[in-house]
Amino acid sequence: MKAKDTTNIWLDIGKAAEVLGLSVQTVKKQCRKGSFVFKIIKRGKQSHYFIHLKSLPDFAQDKYSGEKISDKKYSEAPNWAKEQAEKYLPILKASNGLKGEALKDFINKWNNENTEELRTSYSSLIKMRRRFFRYGISGLLSKHGQHLTGSTVPDNYFEYFKNLYLVEGAPSLRTCWDLTLGYAIRMLDAKRETFPSFMAFKRRLDKEVPKQSIYLARMGETAWNRKYGGYIERDYSNIICNEVWVSDHAQIDVACFDSDNKVVFPWVTVWRDYKSGKWLGWILQSGNPNSDHIFQSFYYAAEKYGLPKDVIIDNGKDYRSKDFAGGSRSIKISTNKTKTQS
């Protein structure tokens, strides 16, 4: 019997939802996410979705065409991959129709009567039921899909896609996929119907390029270092409260009106205790922070809590001023000796 040619078959969304076992709305959402190859045809004021058959999972193609693609995959699978399927086939058959407490009772009885290798759990059995329903017997194979087929994205498409996506400030993954599709149609005579889906590109990218490498390429070294860069944790065990202070500026993400009735996002300059994190002295201002704000907030902290033994400051310009780094200017702060020693 001659096999059906499925290279250019488009299913209306109702039929696609039927073979997928999903609602029409869910299929539409998956289309917009790039899970399937689809097209929209306007008929009057209504938009009709059509989905390319070859972009659907194998189990859906099986249902539509009547062919057993999944069974063929099982027969071609290595023996080590079949062991899991051979374990679950009798369990699925024996537990057919059971659910809830009845299924849990069956699992307990099964586990008591069988060896460790044949035992299962409620969550594992539910997962295998779902796989068996969707993919047939090949869904029960160990690591289904990872050793049976490679990526559907050809190397030349993928290299062009990476050159677009893995660049600092590059557009979104979906936009890069659209650009790759346009390039393939113009330069390589590709067809929209057989072009790999957006999700196929994403899966290959996630599989071949580490997450940190993607972040570095797209966000830059500074952003990567803040998120993934190595660091050494400080040892707080030998530090006594109020002996070491730290200071920094931060802009508050709250819009306010200043004295001139202008909208501003105020800055806060803070000195806090390094050990406990307690705020000791701070000052709010609408303009850009400077060394005067640093000293004013330090004065508030020292007046109330006394002087610290050490301070930790960053390498900002205002903290590198002569007032902190050394110079002729001197700052006198009157403090309560009792508070300093407490």
Score class of each variant (00 low, 15 high):
K202D: 08
D314L: 00
N112E: 15
G100F: 01
I137T: 12
S237T: 06
V209Y: 02
H52N: 03
F195M: 03
Y74K: 10
K82P: 00
F59N: 14
L125I: 13
R186V: 12
F257Y: 09
K191G: 05
Q25T: 15
S55I: 13
N336Y: 05
S328D: 12
D58A: 15
M219E: 10
V254T: 07
A217Q: 07
S121T: 14
R32N: 12
A170K: 06
K322I: 14
F132D: 14
V246D: 11
Y157F: 12
D318I: 14
K275M: 10
S123D: 11
F132H: 12
Q251S: 03
K104P: 04
W10K: 05
K262I: 02
Y274A: 14
A200S: 15
N315A: 04
D58G: 10
C31S: 03
F257A: 12
K304D: 13
S35A: 12
P289A: 07
T149P: 03
E159Y: 04
R43A: 10
A3I: 10
A85V: 05
K28H: 00
A170W: 05
Y215G: 01
L164C: 08
A223T: 08
G277I: 14
L141H: 00
I40P: 11
K39R: 11
F324G: 08
E83I: 15
F50P: 00
F106D: 04
S138E: 03
A200Y: 09
I40T: 15
E221R: 14
S55M: 10
T222N: 15
A301P: 09
A102T: 08
K337M: 04
K202Q: 06
Q46E: 15
D12L: 09
F298I: 01
I13E: 11
R320G: 08
T194Y: 00
S121Q: 03
K29D: 06
S172Y: 02
P289N: 02
H144K: 06
T149Y: 02
N96D: 11
R131Y: 08
L181A: 12
A301H: 08
L166F: 05
E18P: 01
G145H: 02
E116S: 03
F106N: 03
N163G: 13
L141V: 00
L141R: 00
G281L: 04
Y299I: 06
K15F: 05
Y300T: 09
K87F: 08
R218T: 05
K162H: 01
G97D: 03
R226N: 14
V37H: 00
H147M: 11
E101P: 07
E168A: 08
T269N: 12
K39V: 09
Y64G: 00
K42T: 04
L284A: 05
L20Q: 04
I185P: 01
W10T: 05
R329V: 12
R129L: 09
A16M: 03
D248I: 02
